[in-house]
Nucleic acid binder design. Sequence first.
DNA 1: CTGGGCAGGATTGTTTGACAATTTCGTCTA
DNA 2: TAGACGAAATTGTCAAACAATCCTGCCCAG
Lengths: 210, 210
Amino acid sequence: MNYIVNDVQEAIRSGRLALGQRLIEADLARELGVSRGSLREALNRLSTAGLVEIVPNRGAVVRRLSRKEVADRYQIRARLEGLAAALAAERLHEADHRDRLLSAAPPASSGAPSVEEYRRDNYRLHETIADLSGNPQLAALIRQLWLPAHMVELRGSLDTGFHRESAEDHRRIVDAILAQDPTAADAAMRTHLEARCQVILSLPSRVFGE
Amino acid sequence: MNYIVNDVQEAIRSGRLALGQRLIEADLARELGVSRGSLREALNRLSTAGLVEIVPNRGAVVRRLSRKEVADRYQIRARLEGLAAALAAERLHEADHRDRLLSAAPPASSGAPSVEEYRRDNYRLHETIADLSGNPQLAALIRQLWLPAHMVELRGSLDTGFHRESAEDHRRIVDAILAQDPTAADAAMRTHLEARCQVILSLPSRVFGE
DNA sequence: CTGGGCAGGATTGTTTGACAATTTCGTCTA
DNA sequence: TAGACGAAATTGTCAAACAATCCTGCCCAG
C-alpha cells in the first residue's frame, strides 16, 4: 500500500500531476491499477504529509504552499533541525556516527553539481543529521516537514549562487557537529535555514500558490 | 468519518479500550456500527496522531509510550512550544490577543482544582498560546504532539504538588508573553516543559509501556 | 521431553460493485 | 440577467469476498 503513496508522490514530482490539479479518485485509481479504497488510504496519508489537500466532499488537490506557509514551515524546521544538529553534536562519539556524518557530508565539491544532485545531497545531509540526533520522533517530524520542491514551483528558479551558499552553510554545520559543539551546531543550522528561507521568499510570486 | 476518529479516541480515553490492547478491525467496526473500510481510514489517522500504532499485517494497538519516547517527545515540545510562546509575545499587540490569552490563563486559583479540571485548563492554555503564535502549522503540530494522558498511564500518579508547580510555571509564561518579551516567554515555556518532563520520568516504570 | 515443521484458524490487505449524499454544471424560466 | 431546477459527476460509505500473512496448537523426529 505504501507503493501507492510513492506512485502518487512520483507522479506529482514528475509533473504528471500538476500543482493545484484536482485528483479524481476513480480516474487516478484506474491509472495506477489499484482500487479506489486503497487509493483513498494513500491520499489520506499524503494529506497528513501535506503533499495533498483534502476538502470534504470535494476531493483531493495537489497542494501548493503560499508564501506565508513557506515562511511558517521554515520557522518550524529551523527550530527542529537546530535541535537535531545540537543532539547530533552531543552524540557524535557514539559508534559509527562520525563516519555516517562524513559520508553524507558535501562531497568535496567535484565541480558544479547539477540541480538534481544538489537536491539529493542536500536532503541526504539533513536526513542524516536528523537520524544522528537519536530521537526517532524528531527525525520523523523533520522528514514530514521537508518541503518537497513541488510544493513550491522552484524548478529552474534557483541559480548556482544558491547552491554554493548552501554548500558553505552545510560545511559550517558539519564542522560544528564534528567539533561536538551543540550550541554552534544549533546556531549554524538555524542560520542556514533562515537564509535559505529568505532566498526562496524573494522569488517571484509565480512559484507560490496564493 | 471524523466522528469515527472521535469515537475511537473517546473509547481510549474512557478506558474502554485499554492501553496496549490490540484492535481487531472486524470487532471494532461492528461495535461502532461502521464498515471495516471506514474504520481503517480512521485508524490510519489515529496512527499519524500517535494514539495508535499500526504494524503491517498485524493491525493496530493502543499505543503506550516508553520512558525514552516520553523524554524525546518533551524535548520536541519544548522547542516547538517555546517558539509558539515567543511568537505569541511578538504578536500580543494584535486585535484580541491579550483578551484571549487572559481568558485562557490560570483562573486565579479558586481552591485546589480537580485533576480533570487541571488537565483541561492546562491543555487550554497551551493550545491558546499555540494559536496566538499566528503559525497554523505550528499550532497543528503542537496539538499533534500533545501527549494524551492515556499514552502514559498517569491516572492518579500526580500529586497536588505537581499541579501547583505547574500553575506557577504557567503564570510565569503568561507574564512573559504579556510583557511582550519573546526571549523570556521562550525560556519560561522550555523550563516548564523540561521540569514537567523530569517529574513524569521519575514516576515508577509501571506507568510506561516498555 | 523438546524443538522443528505443519496445517488450520484468525486477521489484515485489497478488490469489486453498489448506493446514498453532496457538489457541480448546464439549462430553463421569471 | 439572476436565480431555480434537475441531471451528471464525484465523494462517502457499505457489504461481501478472497488472497496474503500471521498466529496457534499439534504432531513427529531426535
